[in-house]
Computed example of a mutant assay.
Amino acid sequence: MTRDEVLDIFRECGAILEGHFVLTSGLHSPVFLQKARVFQYPWKTEILCKALAEKIRAEVGQGVDMVVAPAVGGIVPGYETARHLGIPGVWVEREQGQFRLRRFEMPENARVVIVEDILTTGLSIRETITAVEALGATVVAASVLIDRSGGTVNVGVPLVSLADYAVPAYPADQLPPELEALPAVKPGSRGLA
């Protein structure tokens, strides 16, 4: 699946929004990828996650025991990608501010691939890696549907990206005037109670 085919699915679903957005990372951007608008269509989500599973197989190989996704955004693509890989898919969730595998058991010496929806700074992936490695598992790779950093973020393990889509993101004190002139909207999930 090509980058343009991935972005076309996001466009078809009205999932590439323009304006002034405060991202989950706290950075500000003129573009927000509202993946929930894609995930509401199981057949479109299947197309993306099947392609991501194929890319994981091609780049990582067959030796993966489990998919782990960060909640909330990674749950849907994590589940669907795990289905196409034919392995269990679980998720970590925040407990007192840190990711933890609360609802599932981690098999001893498991080889894990992290599946996330969108990568901006890589914080959720790095926190997921920390949680998984604390349980004795080995993270062999991380994967995302879209890498909005354009390949500039290092998450500490090999990264498999279905599409790179470099989108500008700015700290709050470094906004360009055209972005500063627009009201900011915070559509992400981190920080929800």
Rank of each mutant, 00 (worst) to 15 (best):
G19A: 04
K44L: 09
P168A: 13
V113Q: 05
A82P: 13
T45S: 15
I129L: 05
V132Q: 05
P77Y: 10
F104Q: 04
K35S: 15
T45L: 02
F21E: 00
L23W: 12
A169E: 11
Q98V: 14
V160H: 02
Q34I: 10
M66K: 09
A181I: 05
E46P: 00
G150L: 12
Y79P: 00
L123C: 01
M106F: 02
V76E: 03
V68K: 03
G14N: 06
F39S: 13
L162T: 11
E59P: 11
Q98K: 15
Q98C: 07
L7Y: 05
R3M: 08
W43N: 14
L182C: 01
A141Q: 04
I114D: 01
T120E: 03
V140L: 15
W43P: 00
G63R: 15
V115P: 13
A163E: 02
P70E: 03
G74M: 11
V160M: 02
A110N: 04
T138Y: 07
L23Q: 10
P158G: 11
T24M: 05
E59T: 07
F32T: 07
V60R: 04
R111C: 02
I56E: 03
C49W: 09
W43M: 10
Q62C: 00
E80Y: 15
A166T: 08
L52N: 03
H20N: 15
L145I: 15
A137H: 06
T2D: 15
T130I: 08
D65E: 05
G19V: 10
Y165F: 14
E12T: 15
F21G: 04
L179M: 08
T138R: 15
P70N: 12
I129E: 03
G19K: 04
V90Y: 07
P168D: 08
W91P: 12
G89Y: 04
I129Q: 00
I118M: 03
S29F: 11
G73R: 03
A53S: 14
A53G: 13
D164S: 12
F104I: 09
W43I: 11
R94P: 13
T81L: 02
V22M: 09
T81R: 04
G156L: 14
L17E: 09
A172F: 07
V139W: 08
G191K: 00
I87R: 13
A141C: 09
P176W: 06
V167E: 01
A172T: 12
A137N: 11
A134T: 07
V144S: 06
P42T: 09
Y170N: 13
Q174H: 10
A69F: 01
F10V: 14
E95P: 00
V139T: 04
T120C: 11
D4N: 15
R94D: 12
T45E: 03
P168N: 13
Y170K: 00
V31K: 08
V153M: 02
I87P: 13
L85N: 06
A131S: 09
L52V: 13
V153A: 00
P88L: 09
A141S: 14
I87H: 06
G26R: 13
G78V: 11
T138L: 00
E5F: 04
